[in-house]
């Protein structure tokens, strides 16, 4: 049995709606109309212990809903789900003792308390023994460089500082599984890198299973061995970052002067900007480059993957209902 097992998961919300304007508001008082929103539709996947899985999809795709079901907060409308052999929403209290969750958009720390007091309160809530707490918190404080922040009330922290503290807070009880919902949202480059290397280390050295949602493809490329892609509540892809890449390459060529491309070569050109031309080539890239350099005088040349964002955006667009 995999550590996280999800089969045909369904979640429908009932959303109250009213027509715009004053008349709509008045009618809403008397007669409420509800609309069913399908947040998840037949979502199935399983995750083994120690995996680091990226969960991506556009806003409103159902990522957070999945995480909330997996962590026992929401009850699904249908389907099966087991985490560590427990049904999350039926055994919520037992289940949550073994998971750590960070919602990037809101903090789990107590706003008016110094950071260390939040940690201590979590120690008591999760009933962590003093010895374990000292060991874990010392390690987290060192790795995430929290010592200058410990006595600062949470409301005075910057977003990057707060996120580091939040990450530490989610690990005080040494969970086997870590759910990260947009942990890098709004962070600057340095903070993002720190976050990534920490998550990676936690996964490698402790074997913590990590499921992380993000909009940042660099997060995915840097961290994840596996990728789940969801849109409109339906799982579109379950594979590796490699699978997402086609054999298409971008060939960036700086010519000596503005080139007169032959019709055949011009058909590969996607963007032209003076002496620079960007070609899109599928397979046979070495032959193409040899051909170009044989026919034109080339100043510089670069081959790269198409940006993963474009590939993903393409998949999102294709999945329009």
């Amino acid at each position: 049995m995999p550590q996280i097992f999800v089969e045909n998961l369904e979640k429908r919300f009932r959303v109250a709606e009213r027509k715009a304007g004053l008349w709509g508001a008045v009618r809403g008082l008397v007669h409420r109309r509800y609309r069913e929103v399908e947040a998840l539709h037949e979502v199935s996947f399983s995750i083994e212990q120690g995996e680091l899985v990226g969960y991506i999809g556009p806003n409103g795709a159902g990522k957070s809903t999945t995480i909330k079901i997996l962590s026992g907060i929401l009850v699904p409308s249908g389907g099966r789900c087991e985490v560590n052999g427990l049904i999350p929403w039926e055994n919520r209290i037992k289940h949550v003792a073994h998971i750590g969750v960070v919602f990037g958009q809101r903090t789990q720390l107590w706003w008016d308390l110094p950071v260390i007091e939040s940690f201590e309160l979590l120690r008591d809530i999760y009933r962590v023994s003093p010895a374990d707490f000292t060991r874990t918190s010392d390690e987290l404080i060192e790795l995430l460089e929290l010592s200058p922040l410990l006595d600062v009330p949470v409301r005075q922290l910057s977003l990057g500082q707060r996120m580091r503290c939040d990450l530490a807070a989610s690990l005080i009880h040494q969970p086997d599984i870590l759910f990260l919902d947009e942990p890098t949202i709004g962070l600057d480059a340095v903070a993002k890198l720190a976050m990534r290397s920490f998550v990676q280390r936690q996964n490698k050295e402790r074997g913590t299973t990590v499921l992380l949602t993000t909009h940042d493809m660099d997060d995915i490329e840097a961290l994840c061995t596996r990728l789940l892609l969801i849109n409109h509540g339906t799982l579109l892809m379950d594979g590796t970052v490699k699978d997402l890449r086609s054999d298409e390459r971008r060939v960036l060529v700086d010519f000596e002067g503005v080139p007169q491309l032959s019709a055949e070569h011009a058909s590969f050109a996607r963007e032209r900007n003076g002496s620079r031309v960007i070609f899109r080539v599928r397979g046979r890239v070495p032959e193409f480059i040899a051909d170009i350099t044989a026919h034109y005088s080339v100043h510089d040349l670069m081959v790269e993957h198409p940006p993963i964002e474009e590939t993903v955006a393409e998949l999102y667009r294709k999945s329009v209902r």
């Binding site: 026992g72 919520r92 209290i93 037992k94 949550v96 809101r106 809530i125 999760y126």
Partner: peptide, 14 residues
């Protein structure tokens, strides 16, 4: 109001 109650439900407490 803000949905911060999710964290309350994540604690192993009634």
């Amino acid at each position: 109001r803000t949905g911060g109650v999710v964290y309350e439900l994540l604690r192993p407490l009634d």
